[in-house]
């Protein structure tokens, strides 16, 4: 395990050096990400000033949902940034070099360099979650533990989505649009999926499980999630990860190294 951590650390420090090579670009990306975060919070505040509650949720509950969305979405982006570079490895044949190295290719393709520019938003999200927790009222230790458990489950589903993308990438060379489609789907969960009408709500919860991934952790924190839904969430997380690994293995078996 420590070997994997050392390799991840090495690859991340290298990719960080690349990201910070141009201070002009790094500053603009940093400002852009903070601005996007701040403007969306402003949007929620303006909305709440007129409607008092959205789908029954108060302002701090909405901020909790939005912060949890950012926590899961940005953690996935931070850790799994290498997936965004995977297409060029396939198209240019560089994936062959990854395959022959004494390192699991899935690990290399997922964790081959984290994006340091995502860290500020990650820290900001955690701070906002803690502030929201103090503002939304009664929260007990069980709810906090369930929140952490379901957040980890959300990250597992995010990981599965990324593995699916890699598998599809090997089979079709299509990566960029698939990953951006995933990003758009997760964007739908910036607000709790309860705001959407049926059948969109069920689709977003159980078929494309961004609801389970992002909306369920804060709902558990607020004590709004039944035990059966918690069990379904955890089961779906495991099933999703299993299916994604099957697709990855299927992709590897059919990889033809055509570009090298």
């Amino acid at each position: 395990m420590s070997r994997f951590f050392k390799i991840w650390w090495l690859l991340t420090s290298l990719s960080s050096q690349v990201a910070l090579r141009s201070s002009f670009g790094a500053i603009l990306f940093f400002v852009g990400k903070i601005l996007r975060f701040g403007l969306f919070i402003a949007f929620i505040l303006v909305l709440e000033s007129k409607v008092k509650s959205i789908a029954g949720y108060s302002i701090w509950q909405m901020i909790l949902f939005f912060s949890t969305f950012n926590l899961i979405d940005v953690t996935a982006q931070f850790l799994l940034r290498e997936v965004y570079r995977f297409r060029s490895y396939i198209v240019r044949g560089e994936f062959d070099f990854i395959l022959i190295k004494p390192l699991p290719p899935l690990f290399r393709s997922l964790f081959g360099g984290s994006d340091i520019l995502d860290l500020p938003i990650l820290i900001l999200s955690i701070i906002l979650i803690i502030i929201s927790m103090t503002k939304v009222g009664d929260i007990n230790l069980t709810n906090i533990l369930l929140f952490l458990l379901l957040t980890i489950n959300g990250l597992i589903i995010a990981l599965a989505f990324h593995i699916f993308t890699l598998g599809i990438g090997i089979l079709t060379t299509e990566v960029d649009n698939t990953i951006m489609l995933y990003r758009d789907l997760t964007q739908m969960a910036r607000f709790p999926v309860d705001i959407y009408r049926q059948p969109a709500q069920s689709l977003l919860t159980f078929v494309i499980p961004v609801g389970i991934m992002i909306t369920f952790p804060p709902k558990a924190l607020l004590g709004l999630l039944s035990p059966i839904l918690i069990i379904i969430s955890l089961t779906l997380g495991v099933v999703f990860l299993y299916l994604s690994l099957r697709l990855w293995n299927f992709g590897l078996k059919h990889y033809q190294s055509a570009s090298s």
């Binding site: 489609l181 758009d184 009408r197």
Partner: peptide
């Protein structure tokens, strides 16, 4: 087509939000 699917998703996200509000 993928680009347009993404556009449709973005439209639905914002439309459904405002439909609720």
């Amino acid at each position: 087509v993928m680009w347009r699917v993404r556009n449709l998703l973005q439209l639905l996200t914002i439309y459904l939000l405002w439909a609720t509000i």
